[in-house]
Design a binder for these strands. Sequence first.
DNA 1: AATGAATGAGGTTTCATTCAT
DNA 2: TATGAATGAAACCTCATTCAT
Lengths: 189, 189, 189, 189
Amino acid sequence: MPKIVDAAQYRQELLSKCFDLFAERGYANVTTRQIAQELGVSTGTLYHYFANKQVLFEQLAEQVSLQDVAMISQVDKNQDIPQRIIALGQLLIENQEYVIKQAAIWIDFLQHCSTKKVSENLVFEQIDLRYEQAISELLDLKDPQLASLIWTLIDGISINQLDSKDSFTTQINLLTQMLIAYFEKHILI
Amino acid sequence: MPKIVDAAQYRQELLSKCFDLFAERGYANVTTRQIAQELGVSTGTLYHYFANKQVLFEQLAEQVSLQDVAMISQVDKNQDIPQRIIALGQLLIENQEYVIKQAAIWIDFLQHCSTKKVSENLVFEQIDLRYEQAISELLDLKDPQLASLIWTLIDGISINQLDSKDSFTTQINLLTQMLIAYFEKHILI
Amino acid sequence: MPKIVDAAQYRQELLSKCFDLFAERGYANVTTRQIAQELGVSTGTLYHYFANKQVLFEQLAEQVSLQDVAMISQVDKNQDIPQRIIALGQLLIENQEYVIKQAAIWIDFLQHCSTKKVSENLVFEQIDLRYEQAISELLDLKDPQLASLIWTLIDGISINQLDSKDSFTTQINLLTQMLIAYFEKHILI
Amino acid sequence: MPKIVDAAQYRQELLSKCFDLFAERGYANVTTRQIAQELGVSTGTLYHYFANKQVLFEQLAEQVSLQDVAMISQVDKNQDIPQRIIALGQLLIENQEYVIKQAAIWIDFLQHCSTKKVSENLVFEQIDLRYEQAISELLDLKDPQLASLIWTLIDGISINQLDSKDSFTTQINLLTQMLIAYFEKHILI
DNA sequence: AATGAATGAGGTTTCATTCAT
DNA sequence: TATGAATGAAACCTCATTCAT
């Protein structure tokens, strides 16, 4: 009997392990050899679990999106909308290291998708929808575009955090206030 | 009489010509041969005008940032702040094709910078400052962070425009309203 | 009670099963994984029965040569030489699918042998001798070179059957007539 | 101005230089690095002149077929058919080293073609036709199948010359006699 | 100034073979 | 016996860059 008991689970582990690598260097600047090394396996093993570098990356993006959604759903919904927005901001700031990396990967994935043909965008659209739903649910939104936009703005902030990570807090807080102001004026009451 | 009168100007022309290429494919997916072909010159000539691919790209990013600033400064300042915000939104929507491409290049450049060492971030910081000033001036802002944020959010929206370009208008309009709500609540009296 | 009673016999079965695979794709274009899959076993099992891919192939070539000889010996020897030649041609045409595949494997094996050192040519020479004897016996030949040549010519025709399998019949018939003409002129009486 | 004056001619030179390599080792056993080394160029240069290994090989096969035809046309046609056949045999024996290698490449090419899809067989059919015409012309043949067959038989003999190169002469001579016997019986008069 | 042939390090991927279970 | 995950050398190919002309 072979060593690995649950291949699917092991794949997830491998994906998690190369999260930092892709986030910090970007898809094009990471070699498959580096990935294998980071994972502590041979390149052969890498290709045993993932058809190719592209597929590996797509599965990582998918995994990341699921984690993001899980993070968002941590916000306590027993509060009014402005409080929830603040709580979301708080959560992002607490997890800023992760959030910034996640954004780096997501942007990379976007570029990747725009290069490829439409057929592959199915996985992209599916992921996109996930974010939309998570935000809609959190803020009781009826407008899907608004939900999409909010996460888009968060990503926008995240990727702009080159080294000045202390500004992340400030920018998220500013965004929080913008959202609250917008909600108070257009949505609540 | 030599063909090229003004080398500096010719360089600018070359840069302009490869804007689309980088925007659509991304730095890593464009080869120097493709660039040369797009420009209608040989690779040798390319290297005559630019030390290497990286420098070429950095100069393109710089050129783009100057064009962006020029675009922003087109907004008529003889209106109140909310009107200026609306006008800016309008401008972005009118130039959406350019704005989206510009964002693609900017994000690519960000990734590029975060990979490299600090020494090269000088050019990055310089560019960043330019945006900050343009927005600050346009909206009479005292807080540089807020100015930075606004352009950051615009970029955030822009890069998320994979194919669904019709949503760009909606999203920019939503952002416009957020900004107005925020200004009304926190800045204008 | 162990599953496999007779390892030697099982090996023969395995060899027979991968005949088509090697014939259609060629030694270099068949992976051990494909072989294992075709055989319905794991690669581990494959290596349990055969030291390596090369040995597997050599044994296949040997098995094929034995089958060829068995086929040749089916020709009824109660006829004169020209009739036997015609009967041999008939037999080849009837089994053309097999004959063509067998030739593909044989040629592959020849290439294989010419690459390796002389030590391994023992198995090659042994196989070669087998063909020589079978043909010599069938046509009452004294000249071993002539016997060799005949099978060589048949192989030559066989490998040239890319897709145009209908020409196989024609070409074998032409060869048959050549042989008869040659025998009538130089050998019989 | 670049170094190479006539790229097409240089390509031919490169092809000629790797003839031995492919003939002796076979397509699958020759690496692109070995080819480059044999040619005295870098792998990059190799790929500058040939899209990939496959294309290089196909062009080699094509070149070889042209040389073969040129060789065949050397036979003096001012003699009767049997004499021409003998002269052809003589020519083959004189050039046996080349003939054997050429056959090795041709067989490799056949295998290669049978693996690929029909679209690529155009080049194969074209080459095949060339042989047919050269032989038809030499022996005043009306039957294209017979012409094809003759070259096929020569190839059959050639590839069977593993090391025993002295038998090549014998076998070609035997084939010569077969052909003469066949012509005398079926074609002439 | 302009060309594009030449370079070769290094990228992605394959695959025969091993070995723990 | 049987399995198939794991290995890593080595294959094919790309591409930023150089340099002779």
